[in-house]
Structure formats: structure tokens, C-alpha cells
């Protein structure tokens, strides 16, 4: 992938199957986030192909939006809604006002130890807690392919283990994770590692 003649992502080949967790590593500027954006259909390729469930990735297609969840670029959040309300809205956007939505919201809050912060507003939580909140917004929705850019950001070892445990459960349930990271703990948890650069 190139911009104005400058290569921002070198030729890369990767095939991830269901139930796999891939780590993408490499120095800054090598194209890790760009790769995630390309897989997520957020950045067009200048050459090559990126297939999702066997078809060229295209976020205009409902099936691709259903399959794919991503935390790559900053997520807009509502300042006047609590952590629980925002996660609840995401769950409701899939399951409507139902027991399934409520159950998934409560479960992800517990899994990421956010239950105690559920009634706080985003500005009332720390940077690490906000990162957990952003992860919860992605993990509360159903997805078969999940893209995470540096999920370890602002997290201590304990909370990082917590996140990796939740991700591990999703992987065992059949989801595919593609994680750009600089952290050895994350890399060691993954099934495969793709080194760029």
C-alpha cells in the first residue's frame, strides 16, 4: 500500500482461520495499524486483495459489518451517557431491548471488572479504565473477526491478563482476532505472529 509514492505497508500475506489469534508486531510506522485498517475495509489497497469470509472486504455490505468488529481508530463516545448506558446502547443496536442485550452488557462489565464503574461518565474514569471501556464497546457486540490496535494501551499487567482471558474465551468460541501490539505478553498469548519490517 502506498501514499504519494511512499510505501506505508509492504506486501504482506496472511490467512487467518476461525478460532485463531494473530499478533502483528514490528517497529513504529511499519504499517501495523494500516494493515488492520485495510482488513477492516477502512483503507483501500493500492494493490493486492483482502478477503473477508471469502469475499473482498466491503463495509457497505451488511454481512461484512456483521462479521467484523474493530478498535483501531479512536471511538467517539458520548460525554453525557454512563459507561453502562453506552455499552447498553451498543448491545441494543444488535439485540433490541431484550434480555439478551441486558445479559451481554452485564457480562462484559463483569468480565472486564467495569461493574463498579458502570454508572460513571467517561470523564470520571482513568486512562486504563477508559481503554477497558473502549474494549467493552467492541466485545459486547457479536463478531466473528475482531481487530484490535494495541489493546494493552494504558493497562497494567493484571488488567491486561483480564483482557487476554476475555479475548481467549472469544477465540475458543470460534472468533478470529488480529491484534497489533508491541507487548510480549500479548504476542506470547497469540497462536501466530506476523512480524512486519
Amino acid at each position: 500500500m502506498e501514499i504519494d509514492g511512499t510505501t506505508i505497508l509492504p506486501p504482506t500475506s496472511l490467512e487467518a482461520s476461525a478460532g485463531q489469534m494473530w499478533a502483528v508486531t514490528g517497529p513504529n510506522g511499519v504499517g501495523k495499524s494500516t494493515l488492520l485498517r485495510a482488513v477492516g475495509g477502512r483503507r483501500p489497497l493500492t494493490s493486492g486483495r483482502c478477503l473477508l469470509v471469502g469475499e473482498e472486504v466491503d463495509l457497505r455490505r451488511a454481512v461484512h459489518r456483521r462479521v467484523l468488529a474493530a478498535l483501531v481508530d479512536p471511538v467517539p463516545i458520548a460525554r453525557d451517557l454512563t459507561v453502562r448506558e453506552q455499552i447498553g446502547i451498543v448491545a441494543d443496536s444488535w439485540f433490541g431491548r431484550s434480555a439478551v442485550a441486558t445479559g451481554r452488557t452485564s457480562r462484559i462489565l463483569e468480565e472486564l471488572m467495569l461493574s463498579g464503574l458502570a454508572n460513571r461518565f467517561p470523564h470520571q474514569v482513568s486512562a486504563g479504565q477508559r481503554q477497558l471501556f473502549h474494549l467493552a464497546l467492541v466485545l459486547v457486540r457479536p463478531a466473528e473477526v475482531v481487530l484490535l490496535d494495541e489493546p494493552e494501551r494504558h493497562l497494567d499487567d493484571h488488567h491486561l491478563d483480564l483482557v487476554l482471558r476475555v479475548v481467549g474465551e472469544r477465540v475458543r468460541a470460534g472468533a478470529t482476532f488480529l491484534v497489533a501490539t508491541h507487548h510480549r505478553t500479548v504476542t506470547s498469548t497469540c497462536d501466530r505472529v506476523l512480524r512486519l519490517g
Binding site: L81, E85, I89, D92, S93, W94, G96, S98
Partner: peptide, 22 residues
């Protein structure tokens, strides 16, 4: 997933209901 998903209208209404209740 297909069985547990609500109808599009219900989903949109649920989001707006949450948002209106802020």
C-alpha cells in the same frame, strides 16, 4: 446470532430510546 437479533426497526428504536433517556 440471526435468531437472537431483533428486527431493524426494534434495534433503531431501542438505540433512540436509550439516547432519549439520557
Amino acid at each position: 446470532l440471526g435468531r437472537s437479533l431483533a428486527s431493524p426497526a426494534e434495534r433503531v428504536a431501542a438505540v433512540h430510546a436509550w439516547h432519549a433517556g439520557r
